[in-house]
Design a protein around this nucleic acid. Structure first.
Lengths: 188, 188
DNA sequence: TGGCGCGGAGAACGATCGTTCTCTAGGCTA
DNA sequence: TAGCCTAGAGAACGATCGTTCTCCGCGCCA
């Protein structure tokens, strides 16, 4: 097993365990067991749990936004792409391992204690907002900023509400609200 | 110090510490120190940390919804009360100790591990939705259900977005989106 | 006044955690 | 083949946590 494979297995195990059970309840030894990578190697690649947690968040950020962007980009017209975000959310919410936003969860758990985690979470949310801003702009909005911010609020609200209630329905509520927001902003 | 005072001091200390630092990072001994109640008494009143956590969440639920309802009820006309919710949120977000939704944070941390916590969180969100439903109904909506769900999503989104970005601005975004939702539902 | 029970302070206990250390086996080089 | 470097398995260590126990002093009742 070379180093890149070990990194991948470690991050895969960390992501699965941290996301499902929270960060503090998952010990390093559990990640070793799930990944099959020895503890020595683990600490060679990620010198502390904090570093591993930040790496987990940053890799998940890239994958998450990549999957969203890929789904949305498949829509032929730019006008329907902002609402497509909420269709993607609904699919995500229906997956059995869905447990809310990894970043919001991490922030609630460690936002006070770990500046690195807090920054990774803020970066993620900023990137999502930037992405929504582009979608809204390309859909033809004169002033995309306020609309993008409203869509970001709706997306975060849908994620947390769905996580707690256990149903994908909030995605549809958020989509309907987003539709009202877009209509009020002047483009249907 | 009698029992009701000890309970109050314990719950005050637990609420301040759990909300600010998260639940797992705060030990029972820290709650003892902050409350001035001996460890023996603490365990007499709350036989385990889980019980204390649930009590913290349930008391906070009542206080939080009470404060919101009091603020909103001061609005003279029922029609403006749904939007007043977001004015209250904005005031809350501006307070220095604001750190997001205690229930979402607790759910992210312990939702998998503690069924009692998960249930308390779900109960809180259900009560908030019920409250919003009443506001929307009293404002004159023919079908208040979908509108109330959209407002609930907006409120949760505003709370988490504000917690992470550190500004009260998402309350205004959510308010504007709520206004669009209400307008689209037929009552301006 | 003398014994008794309750409450407080804090030590103690067992478990767990993040992190490091030890020991050993195996593969590469000369 | 002999020596050495690496890596893995897992013990070990120090800290912390939830929870319980010990010890002591103070107030109450006969």
């Amino acid at each position: 097993m070379d180093i890149t494979e070990a990194d991948g297995r470690l991050l895969d195990a960390a992501e699965a365990l941290f996301y499902e059970h929270g960060i503090q309840t998952v010990g390093m030894d559990r990640i070793r067991a799930a990944s099959g990578v020895s503890l020595k190697r683990l600490y060679q690649r990620f010198p502390s749990k904090d570093v591993l947690v930040e790496a987990y968040l940053r890799r998940r950020d890239g994958r998450w936004r990549g999957a969203l962007a890929e789904y949305v980009a498949a829509r032929p017209s730019a006008a329907e792409r902002p609402l497509a975000v909420f269709d993607w959310l609904e699919e995500w919410f229906g997956q059995p391992d869905f447990r809310g936003c990894a970043f919001i969860n991490a922030y609630g758990e460690l936002g006070t204690a770990s500046p690195a985690v807090a920054e990774a979470v803020r970066d993620h949310k900023a990137e999502v907002l930037r992405y929504l801003h582009g979608l809204v702009r390309d859909a033809g909005a004169a002033e995309p900023g306020p609309v993008a911010e409203q869509l970001a609020v709706l997306a975060d609200g849908a994620i947390t509400t769905s996580a707690i209630t256990g149903t994908p329905a909030p995605a549809r509520s958020a989509r309907q609200a987003a539709s009202a927001v877009l209509e009020a902003a002047g483009f249907a």
